[in-house]
Design a protein around this nucleic acid. Structure first.
Lengths: 374, 374
DNA sequence: GCCAGTTAAACAACAGTGTTTCCTAAGTGC
DNA sequence: GCACTTAGGAAACACTGTTGTTTAACTGGC
């Protein structure tokens, strides 16, 4: 088969993989329906036979991942036994590591928050000290674990660029323009895992985790969600067909550096007429309305290019004037996509507010359990 | 499990699905290596045991999908028996239905062209007459089927908007701006299938099929390819992580209607400063270099937003001055993405030239056989 | 030329998946 | 009370990839 390639490439599946796939599917369907679901309903949704569902649910019950929850009303025969996720079976930690702040969440299987901590961080902190701090806060969060609950892992959301697959940061300086820094090529994932006795750690861009946190429980096939984040910079997280689109270098989502003015002003990135440079200029003037209009232009581009279903806005600047951004983006979308082929695309604010990134980071860990592609 | 929803949603897998998945994986790996591959190599690439590969290849050999092809050189022991796709085991038809032209290809499992026909079509043709014509040409193409080869189906690439899942066109007029027409809501897939004795038919946008035709044999995980098509309009096909990204309404790829000049001229779509309106204006002046520069701006936006690995250019206008577009887009990409994080993204011309859409349409049918997500 | 060592591939028995078939449990409605 | 309907489990089954063993085929040293 020729020489070994570096790409793992597609992978074969065996019985264990088949079992895990179907179990994840069932768990995913139960998570999507907070009131729970019946065996019969699961069989219909998965296409599996009722017997198969019986065996799968028996396994999950034995493992303590799900529990029976009463019966539904009869429809002329034996009433269905309802099943629901056992929220306290397992937990995950979600971390938002910002330049000046650290947020650590502990959430259960259903995403409910069991612990929350936000504390300031010195902007000039050394990587090793930051990791020590994060590990310490994760340990503290783990004290809130329900009895018998497993801790599945920790997801970290922080600014890019970074390498998601390797868990390595590509920050050039802690907080500024180009230049070497201790953070460049820093192996955040492995360093943190080492300090937490090998706890699984996943690292991703803040915009990506925030998008993940807004993901619908049951994604529409082929559907897309864009999370747009305006703070010190302007970026986006793209959730396409239920999975984050990161690109091979984890660099996807450079929303702010799209050209919207061919001969516009020079941007720090070296390009002319970037959305970000125009948007930040508006912000400096305190003109949130103008910033919102500009973002709306970029969002319209995004929606048309990717046939996006839903747009979510977040980030400090947005949270400073939420309605201005909501209205401004919505208006631009409507004005710039008059075509009736495109029914109005809903624009909302990040439901988790300031916790959007951390909550989504936990989903980095929980998602695979419920069959989310990574 | 609550009321029935219209979305099929995620689906469970059984042993048959497991078998088909692994068989498709093996076929895909063999297709990617034209010289063939060994059982041992397949085991290493799939992660399956040599025994499993032995059983899978035995099945495929019995079905006539693959064949043994000599032995590789020994590395100190028994030499490996090479396996390769049996190209003549099955074929697919690829169709490019344009306003004024019809192209029909017959390709075998390896994508080799066994038959080709291009003929003019009356622009005002009625849908039923067009379907009759296409069916007739597909029948003629099928005469070139090798003895014993199965015809797997026909893929149709045509301009949008359309509904891929339903196989229904949403053309408002045969060739112009808004207004009702016999083509609107025309069920192309079902009409054509009915005339071809239930032959599987798949319909997709021309830009999508062309992108598919350029897809790498072994996609990089998370990788992306953008096919940019410049003809009467400007569109793109997006291949993300090995699968076409269509969006829920098959409307993804509206590359031409991204705003690149916030207060630019009015476009036919109702927006201001669309890339397409600027680009078509340049074309009317006969200024291909300016059109290429503009496309380069849009491509840079695309590359940064999606972390695209490769850009492919095609369409009549591009083929009229290929080097101008190649150079212009490459130069803009380089100028507008100076960041070293982004190594240069290769820009190429569609390898299949004028046949790009038809060749990719055949891949709509062949792809699933080799494990491509749809 | 022969034999040990090595690699490829098949044979046989096995574990475990969802499926099929059958039966029991638990409701509704006349 | 009884026929009917629906939910769910038990047992046998078909078929998947896996494990353990054997055979085939080539290299290389003596």
């Amino acid at each position: 088969m020729g020489p070994m390639t570096t790409h793992p490439g597609p992978t074969g599946t065996n019985l264990a993989g088949l079992r895990d796939h179907n179990a994840a599917l069932v768990l995913g369907l139960l998570r999507a329906a907070p009131e729970g679901g019946s065996r019969v309903g699961l069989a219909a949704r998965t296409g599996l036979t009722p017997q198969a569902i019986g065996k799968i649910t028996a396994r999950l019950l034995a493992e303590g991942m799900i529990e029976e929850a009463g019966q539904s009303a009869s429809t002329g025969g034996k009433p269905r036994t309802m099943l629901r996720l056992r929220a306290e079976a397992a937990c995950a930690v979600g971390v938002h590591l910002e330049r000046d702040e650290l947020t650590v969440l502990l959430v259960d299987l259903t995403g409910r928050r069991l612990h929350r901590c936000t504390r300031p961080v010195d902007e000039g902190i050394a990587p090793d000290d930051a990791v020590r701090l994060v590990a310490e806060e994760i340990r503290r969060a783990a004290e809130a674990l329900p009895a018998g609950a497993r801790l599945l892992g920790a997801g970290i959301g922080c600014r890019g660029p970074l390498d998601h697959a390797a868990g390595v940061l590509h920050w050039f300086t802690p907080a500024g323009p180009r230049g070497s820094s201790a953070w460049h090529h820093y192996p955040l994932r492995d360093e943190l895992a080492a300090r937490l006795d090998g706890l699984p750690v996943v690292v991703d861009k803040d915009t990506n985790t925030a998008a993940l946190g807004e993901a619908p429980a049951t994604p529409r096939p082929g559907g897309g969600l864009a999370y747009v984040h305006l703070a010190a910079g302007l970026g986006a997280g793209l959730l396409l067909d239920g999975a984050l689109h990161r690109g091979t270098r984890t660099n996807a989502g450079e929303f702010g550096h799209q050209t919207v003015q061919v001969d516009g002003p020079l941007c720090a990135c070296g390009n002319h007429g970037c959305l970000e440079v125009l948007c930040l200029a508006a912000l400096e003037r305190g003109d949130h309305a103008a910033a919102a209009r500009l973002i709306g232009v970029g969002v319209a581009n995004l929606v048309r290019l990717l046939d996006i279903d839903r747009v979510v806005l977040g980030g400090r600047a947005v949270l400073a004037a939420p309605d201005t951004y909501l209205d401004g983006v919505t208006a631009q979308l409507k004005a710039r996509i008059p075509d009736p082929e495109w029914q109005p695309v809903p624009v909302t604010l990040a439901a988790a507010g300031h916790l959007a990134v951390a909550a989504g980071a936990a989903e980095l860990v929980l998602g695979p359990l419920f069959g989310r592609r990574t």
